[in-house]
Computed example of a mutant assay.
Amino acid sequence: MILVTGATGNVGRNIVRGLLDAGEKVRAVTRDPETAGLPAEVEVLAGDLNRPEGLGPALEGVERVFLFPVFGALDGFLSAAKAAGVQHVVLLSSSAVEFAEPGWIGQAHLDCEASVAASGIGHTFVRAGLFMRNDLGWAGQIASGVVRGAYGTAAAAPVDERDIAAVAVQSLLAAQDGSIHTLTGPESLSQIARVAIISEVIGRPLRFEELSREVALDHLSAQMPPEAASFLLDQLASWQGVTAEVLPTVEQVTGRPAHTYREWVQHHAAEFLAG
């Protein structure tokens, strides 16, 4: 039995599907099973990682776990998992842990990794870079024809959530204690270039309009902790005018190429158009 936490999220849903396609028995834990919307083959149980004392039924008979990084709340879950006989944990982490200055986001993920390593359970860390899905945050601006943000020339190699999930699935199926998979997408693209690709795919004229750091910080701080917003802008500033590193990890682990940004936009075109 494999337990998937965060199963109703963007990565988690793809993990569930991948495990089912591989013929695995899957259990999901979610706060509200009634609204989970997961496939009928999945055993869905109520649970909350912040309340590990109630997770006994979810962990019963579980050998492997996909663990979503709930900051500051993993120790209790890991203790319960260890007691239940869980043999391997695949933790969704961030490539920010490898930065010279991890910042708020990187340190939060480092703390999660430290908790998993200290648990004594076999583990794999899947360190994802910038999610392509973050760009769906632009959807609400599409109708205006202008996407606004700071540091338009900042380049990254964003990764498709389907590829993150595929690497996690392989890590669950072929558990190797101590493995670390750092993921990027297959191409370095500035924010301006990504907006241009969205425009081409959805057939609407779009342009990128530069915002000052101060205005961008105000906007981002309404969506995430101010420390995280500041860290993100610091990273964007450092990525201006450079070519982002592209890693072959997705293809090495899954045996197929990583999805391109254009393929990702095609997959989500309806969401951009609905915005």
Rank of each mutant, 00 (worst) to 15 (best):
E60D: 13
H267V: 01
E34S: 15
A46M: 14
Q252R: 15
V11E: 12
V116C: 06
E214L: 13
A154R: 04
T243A: 13
Q191I: 02
A166E: 10
V11P: 05
V62W: 00
G152C: 10
L74K: 07
G72V: 05
G9S: 08
G76I: 02
V70M: 08
S79A: 14
G137A: 08
A166C: 07
A83V: 00
A7V: 03
A269M: 01
A128E: 06
E209F: 12
T243I: 10
L59G: 12
E41R: 08
Q87N: 09
R207L: 02
F208H: 09
A46D: 03
S119A: 12
L232S: 15
L20Q: 03
I142F: 07
A58G: 05
A269D: 03
Y151T: 08
A165L: 06
E200A: 13
V116M: 05
P225L: 03
R27Q: 13
V167S: 10
T184Y: 01
S212D: 14
H219R: 14
A196N: 06
G178S: 05
A28V: 08
V195Q: 07
A46Q: 15
I164M: 11
R13W: 10
F131H: 08
Q107R: 12
E227F: 04
G18D: 07
Y261K: 00
V11C: 03
A258P: 07
V86W: 04
A274E: 11
H268C: 01
A22G: 09
M132S: 14
K82F: 01
R133H: 15
G275Q: 10
G106D: 05
V42H: 12
T243N: 11
V90T: 12
P205G: 09
C112W: 03
L74S: 09
G137W: 07
L173N: 07
S93C: 04
L110S: 08
E41S: 06
